[in-house]
Design a protein around this nucleic acid. Sequence first.
DNA 1: CTGAAAGCGCTTACAG
DNA 2: CTGAAAGCGCTTACAG
Lengths: 347, 347
Amino acid sequence: MVHDPALRSRATIGDVARAAGVSTRTVTRVSLGQPHVGAETRRRTEAAIRNLQYRADSLAQGLAWRRSDLIGMIYENPNPNYIIDVQQGLLEGLQPQRLELVVRRCEQADSEFFNELAAFAERLKLAGMVLTPPLSHDARIAALLEAIGCPYVRIAARRLDRPERTVAGGDRAGAREMGRHLAGLGHRRIGAILGPANFMSSGERLAGLQDGLAEHGVRLSPGLCVRGAYTFESGIAGGRALLAREAAPSAIFAANDEMAAGVLQAARQAGLAVPDDLTVVGFDDLEIARSLWPPLTSVRMPTRQLGRLAAWKLSVAAGRKPLVGGPPPVDAPRLVVRRSCGPPPVS
Amino acid sequence: MVHDPALRSRATIGDVARAAGVSTRTVTRVSLGQPHVGAETRRRTEAAIRNLQYRADSLAQGLAWRRSDLIGMIYENPNPNYIIDVQQGLLEGLQPQRLELVVRRCEQADSEFFNELAAFAERLKLAGMVLTPPLSHDARIAALLEAIGCPYVRIAARRLDRPERTVAGGDRAGAREMGRHLAGLGHRRIGAILGPANFMSSGERLAGLQDGLAEHGVRLSPGLCVRGAYTFESGIAGGRALLAREAAPSAIFAANDEMAAGVLQAARQAGLAVPDDLTVVGFDDLEIARSLWPPLTSVRMPTRQLGRLAAWKLSVAAGRKPLVGGPPPVDAPRLVVRRSCGPPPVS
DNA sequence: CTGAAAGCGCTTACAG
DNA sequence: CTGAAAGCGCTTACAG
């Protein structure tokens, strides 16, 4: 590979040292904000840094520190809206700390998965890693990262690791509200379309729904529970299946908005009006919930805030001094009532 | 910062050299696939690499090469679905080449924008950068990257740089098909909701629409053209505005699906049935186009493939030997007809 | 075909 | 308060 002089980044620490008439050791002290520098020396050095627009080379720094300023995020998730939301939150939290985000899509089924993951973290000397569902649920991944000394944060529906390593959304509490709401509207025969079995959120949302219904003495009949895949298509299929039951439900809880959109289609194809003939509700409250017709009652999850909190925890783990006070806030899940639900038909 | 021995990545090049009884120079030759290594020496070295699970440290390599194996992607785009689609394509193209993707959200309005961008590329010694709309349209960004010697690829609606630096979607051709289709259905009064002025795609889609209509002798009346923001809300607003016209259009072309979803809502609120009273069409053919009711006629854009092609061009720029033959294919935009359009009402 | 040595741009004990 | 020197883990002219 030819050395192209144009590629050379502006000024090195040596240039600054020369310009300021100090040693590189002193430049490091100043640029890293370390103590023990004379006022006049500091002034001269700072001036040189400014004039030469010096910025420490991230690679060299990483090599010396045995740690890069890179945070990895891995995902294997069917829902792009969820991923982008987490990612935005991460970026918001990471960029002020001068940490960069490197993303990677994984296939856990891949035989090389664990080797690849280790290589990813080690080759890049990652300062930390964010695990999103469903990868975050896998204890083996956490164990691997622990073993190679890579700090991580698991984003999940429920706390499942030490506090500094988990960020949880409170799915169960959110679903509980939804259960209360449905029961409160008078629904007694309620259908549910779950997410994939390997998603913790699916189980939590089901449990929460049952909690909320139980407060009103309502039970979810097992025959009205079908498994979905968190996708639009699986929502259509699940909706059709439930509506074909002899005693069809008067309300359908889809474990996410995508599937609820599918249920809406299934209802339409079955000639049912929503909410007059059938109540449909979703979960997550992504943009799609507002775009559909009728607009979907859903539960707003603080996905982005979870990303921001994960970034904060990782900053701490990476030894960054937080710019703000404490950890950023995470709102509790919140029921958002829209036009897709009403009382059961009188029939 | 304390040196934690657990953080040390497994084997260094020195470990391998010692184990194989060769110099580090030879290990480099073997691990990089360079020539001039004796068969026996190569065998021994390869064995050592395998046994020690040696993988060259990415940071040290980058420092020596004055180039990391990191590709940057910057975006400032209101549409997460678009971004995630590009990103997926990039990852698919980059990962086999052992290039990593580091993403960054920018605010071009920020006074530090250009400095931050330069710092991003220089500090990380980026092997390349992907520019997405609307940042890709800005010639100053391209000039900056050129100046600091960072290879880049601009993703846009139309070729606007040297071929190896552009990837274009052919928006105009796609919109042309849509224009033909609408005119073919018999529509004569056609409304259009454009994207933001700083998006090249907006202008291209408008031009294409006009092309297609013109083939049927139809002209877009200027009074029926309103500016949107590529968002759902702006689609509602645009739809309302158009439907409030004295001579309202019989068909509305929204320059993306998000806005078309908004038009659907506006139509509903105005008591209009789609497609019986009003035809609504979108652009991009993202998942939302299928989820809506009625499902949206749209134009499928090869967004993901553009990402893959951008990754390929950047791999070439980074000096990687392509694993496959030539550049990956990019399909032409394709009209996807669904239930949201029909002939104009007879009235 | 193979290797000793210098260099990439930083940081950190260790002295003074 | 300040600096000379070694080290982080790689690669590449340059010799032989």
